[in-house]
């Protein structure tokens, strides 16, 4: 009985030790069979994109990523500023054609004949009615003629001359306005874009 069992085991062992012959087309047959199987929806591209998943990032990696993004943004902003401006203009002009950017102000000459004046300044809506504004101090050109050429924003403005810090004089050559709220006259000027 024991001999029979040992012989049987020996026979099985021989069979197991014998080399297994695998056909050359086995791989191809297996892959063909796999490809014939229906694709599982979970492994589709769209599923991969929309399926929520948990990503674990260590603080170190997270900090490095944040630093890299910040550095990229700063460098990008530094280099892109001029290029963006240069590149955006033709695109903007293509979509919104405008001949040119309108000027925001025009230089206007103010002239007052005041032979006895020691000082003449122009005040108005365009300089906050500030008689000490440096850009609006008239210069004596001789013969009692005072003048100053200064920028005035486009639009309608009221203004006046201030002589010797005390006397308010409307521009005799300009349109007048009925600004008697404060008891002293004003002039008006309409500054328009020069075409």
């Amino acid at each position: 009985m024991r001999d029979e069992t040992e012989q049987h085991i020996e026979q099985i062992a021989r069979e197991l030790r014998a080399p297994v012959s695998i056909g050359r087309e086995l791989d191809a047959r297996v892959m063909r069979a796999v490809r014939r199987l229906p694709r599982h929806a979970r492994f589709g591209l769209w599923s991969r994109l929309i399926t929520p998943r948990t990503v674990t990032v260590t603080p170190l990696v997270w900090g490095m990523l944040a630093a890299a993004v910040a550095a990229f943004a700063v460098l990008g902003a530094m280099h892109a500023g001029a290029d963006l401006d240069r590149a955006a203009k033709p695109i903007a002009r293509a979509f919104f054609p405008r001949p040119q950017t309108p000027a925001q102000s025009q230089r206007v000459q103010f002239v007052l004949v005041a032979p006895d004046a020691k000082k003449v300044a122009v005040v108005g809506d365009f300089n906050g009615w500030d008689a000490s504004h440096a850009a609006y101090q008239a210069q004596h050109r001789g013969g009692g003629v005072w003048s100053v050429t200064a920028p005035v924003p486009l639009g309608h403005h009221r203004y006046s001359f201030v002589v010797d810090d005390s006397l308010w004089v409307a521009d005799p050559t300009a349109p007048r306005v009925t600004d008697y709220d404060y008891g002293m006259p004003n002039s008006a000027i309409v500054v328009q874009e020069q075409k």
């Binding site: 809506d125 009615w129 008689a131 709220d181 008891g183």
Partner: peptide, 22 residues
């Protein structure tokens, strides 16, 4: 224009009541 009107009043030495009315 309202701010300018108030500034004009201040520059011309007008009193507060006049400025408010104007």
């Amino acid at each position: 224009p309202l701010v300018d009107k108030a500034l004009e009043g201040a520059a011309k030495g007008s009193d507060g009541q006049n400025i408010i009315v104007a």
